[in-house]
């Protein structure tokens, strides 16, 4: 079952073309990794899926991005509603300068949940599913910025989970983290993938190989920035790539 499908998706920053004719079908409740060298458009593509690129002036998308068959770029799309369904975790952990509790409770409060008891339940549940509960349960009032970076990133995941989205986008979530914290996030992704569709951008090919179900390889050439070269089950992409360029990249011949 495909959760997200793009049809002839092109994207522009002003006059600069950044994505070229992307056609992909991202399966539901699996982990899809986007790999490719810097500047190949993976983050741009990811940010198209919840329209975060809208916050950058003078950008433009062409083509379709279908979420459950609905085009999210159609004029009657409610972007706020869309982002509740498609959550996002950023490259650098970005908890708000507030307590752990208030960070996780942010989303539910925005949705209009104010009862202290219900909030406490949602916060506990979200922190548990982000694997952070045992580390912070004794002091939910502590400043989120006093946590380690790895904990902060899991807090950001808990914050997204608290809104109960359908899709979680992760933009190089481990690039600021040490290897142990990285492994924790990968385990967490695996656990979350039973309930959520996860799309992750990563620089790290080992991470894509061990932590994802499907892999998309993107590349830019001289004329066309941001092309999708190959997409398939991770095992196939890494062991018998169909495209010569994919093979060159994963064997480390460039990039």
């Amino acid at each position: 079952m495909d959760k997200i499908k793009t049809e002839h998706l092109y994207f522009y920053y002003g006059r600069k073309q950044a994505l070229w004719d992307i056609n992909i079908a991202i399966p539901e409740r699996h982990i899809t990794a986007l790999i490719g060298p810097s500047g190949c458009g993976k983050s741009t593509f990811l940010r198209c899926l919840n329209r975060m690129n809208d916050t950058i002036p003078r950008t433009r998308a062409e083509g379709k991005v279908l979420l459950d068959g609905q085009d999210i770029y159609s004029p009657d799309t409610n972007v706020v509603e869309l982002r509740r369904r498609v959550g996002m975790v950023f490259q650098r952990p970005n908890p708000f300068p507030a307590s752990v509790f208030d960070n996780v409770a942010f989303g539910p409060r925005v949705l209009g949940l104010y009862s202290r008891a219900e909030l406490a339940d949602v916060v506990e549940e979200s922190l548990r599913s982000a694997g952070l509960w045992d580390e912070v349960k004794d002091n939910l009032g502590q400043d989120a910025l006093s946590l380690s970076l790895g904990q902060q990133q899991r807090l950001c995941i808990a914050r997204v989970v608290a809104v109960k989205p359908e899709v979680i986008l992760m933009d190089e979530p481990c690039s600021a983290l040490d290897p142990i914290a990285t492994l924790k996030i990968e385990d967490l992704m695996r656990a979350l993938s039973t309930e959520y569709t996860i799309v992750i951008v990563t620089h790290n090919m080992q991470q894509a190989a061990r932590a994802s179900d499907f892999t998309a390889f993107m590349l830019s050439d001289a004329e066309r920035t941001g092309q999708l070269i190959e997409f398939g089950p991770t095992a196939d992409v890494f062991t018998r790539p169909r495209d010569k360029r994919t093979e060159d990249y994963i064997t480390g011949r460039f990039g």
Partner: peptide, 27 residues
């Protein structure tokens, strides 16, 4: 106030006003 905070608010489905009053101004 870092853009990251605004992004975090918006990406969680907060409206522009919710992001301003609950994230940016407190920060």
């Amino acid at each position: 106030v870092p853009k990251l905070y605004r992004d975090a608010g918006l990406a969680m489905g907060a409206t522009q006003w919710q992001t301003i009053w609950r994230v940016v101004v407190p920060a």
